[in-house]
Simulated scan of single mutants.
Amino acid sequence: MDFENIIVEKGDGLGQITINRPKKLNALNKDTITELSLAFKLLEDDTEVKVIILTGSGEKAFVAGADIAEFANFSVDEGGNLARKGQEILFDYVENLSTPVIAAINGFALGGGLELAMACHFRVASDNAKMGLPEVSLGVIPGYGGTQRLPQLVGKGKAMELIMTAAMISADDAKNYGLVNHVTTLDELLPLAEKLAGKIMRNSSVAIASAIKAVNANFKDGINGFDVEINQFGNCFGTEDFTEGTTAFLEKRKPNFPGK
């Protein structure tokens, strides 16, 4: 499948999506969101892809925000529909993928860009990265899950401060707040993400998918995360990966998970 605004690559169990609008600092517009949704589905459906890395092209930006010109004249209903559709087809979709997604933040991750990074399962950043949710400086609020995911990651008080002040923080501050897991140089960013992906790929993809469901359940209203964990734990006993994993352990060898 050919894309205009993103680059999709895959090999050796790894999928990579690169947002490729460098002249716009990789800002998210309607077409890019649609293409990202299609690309994630493509990689999710590929049984050979075990981990997905999401990054931006160039050295300046992961995603520098949304394309404001697209919605500057929207009505109330149009604004609500914009947020609803975006969350459904991309942001919530990424969060609930069974394939782990690592955001490799290579520069500015602002507004919708930070929201997209937060929808990924975890984040690594280059030391030149800057992050923030500046929406209130435009008279609006984060609409792609930012008011929900930022407090989950950094706590309510710090999230309130960052959203209300529209502050832009450094990669080191983001790591100290728990927003990103690791900070490295720009040159080492993708190698680090690939190294982490390699560690993930050594484990059972079926068990990892179950773990994602269980962890996410803790943050969903009306759902008992402990019950989801119990059910997912039990389901693992019926998988070929469980048989292989326990057999390999007892035989004192490395497992060769079939992913079933």
Score class of each variant (00 low, 15 high):
Val8Gly: 07
Val8Leu: 04
Glu9Arg: 11
Lys10Ala: 02
Gly11Gln: 02
Gly11Ile: 04
Gly11Met: 02
Gly15Ser: 02
Thr18Gln: 13
Thr18Val: 15
Ile19Met: 15
Ile19Cys: 10
Asn20Gln: 04
Arg21Pro: 07
Pro22Gln: 07
Lys23Glu: 15
Ala27Phe: 05
Ala27Arg: 15
Leu28Val: 13
Leu28Asn: 11
Asn29Tyr: 06
Asn29Asp: 15
Ile33Ser: 04
Ile33Asp: 09
Ile33Arg: 11
Leu36Ile: 15
Leu36Tyr: 13
Phe40Asn: 10
Lys41Arg: 14
Leu42Val: 14
Asp45Ser: 12
Glu48Leu: 03
Glu48Arg: 00
Val51Lys: 09
Ile52Pro: 14
Ile53His: 04
Leu54Thr: 09
Glu59Met: 02
Lys60Gly: 11
Ala61Met: 15
Ala61Ile: 06
Phe62Gly: 10
Val63Pro: 02
Ala66Val: 11
Asp67Tyr: 05
Ile68Arg: 06
Ala72Thr: 08
Phe74Ser: 09
Ser75Asp: 13
Val76Trp: 12
Val76Pro: 00
Asp77Met: 09
Gly79Glu: 04
Gly80Glu: 13
Asn81Gly: 10
Leu82Glu: 09
Gln87Glu: 10
Ile89Lys: 11
Phe91Leu: 01
Tyr93Cys: 00
Val94Arg: 01
Glu95Asn: 07
Asn96Ser: 13
Leu97Gly: 05
Leu97Asn: 03
Thr99Tyr: 00
Ile102Leu: 02
Ala103Glu: 02
Ala103Ile: 03
Ile105Asp: 00
Phe108Glu: 15
Phe108Thr: 07
Leu110Gly: 03
Gly111Ile: 00
Leu114Met: 03
Leu116Ala: 01
Met118Gln: 10
Met118Ala: 08
Ala119Lys: 00
Ala119Asp: 00
His121Asn: 11
Val124Leu: 03
Ala125Gly: 09
Ser126Val: 14
Asp127Val: 10
Asp127Phe: 10
Asn128Pro: 06
Asn128Ile: 15
Lys130Cys: 11
Met131Ala: 05
Val136Leu: 13
Val140Glu: 10
Val140Asp: 11
Ile141Pro: 00
Pro142Arg: 07
Gly146Lys: 06
Thr147Pro: 01
Gln148Gly: 02
Gln152Tyr: 06
Gly155Asp: 01
Lys156Phe: 09
Gly157Asp: 05
Ala166Ile: 08
Ile169Leu: 07
Asp173Met: 04
Leu179Ala: 08
His182Asn: 08
Val183Asn: 08
Leu186Lys: 05
Pro191Gly: 03
Ala193Glu: 09
Glu194Cys: 12
Gly198Ala: 04
Lys199Ser: 09
Met201Glu: 02
Arg202Tyr: 08
Ser204Phe: 04
Val206Pro: 13
Ser210Trp: 01
Ser210Arg: 14
Ala211Thr: 04
Lys213Leu: 02
Ala214Tyr: 02
Phe219Cys: 12
Lys220Arg: 05
Asp221His: 06
Gly222Glu: 03
Asp227Tyr: 13
Ile230Pro: 02
Phe233Pro: 01
Cys236Pro: 03
Gly238Ser: 08
Thr239Ser: 12
Thr239Gly: 11
Asp241Trp: 06
Thr243Pro: 12
Glu244Ala: 12
Thr247Tyr: 07
Ala248Pro: 03
Ala248His: 05
Phe249Cys: 10
Leu250Asp: 09
Arg253Ile: 14
Arg253Phe: 15
Asn256Pro: 05
Phe257Gly: 10
Lys260Val: 13
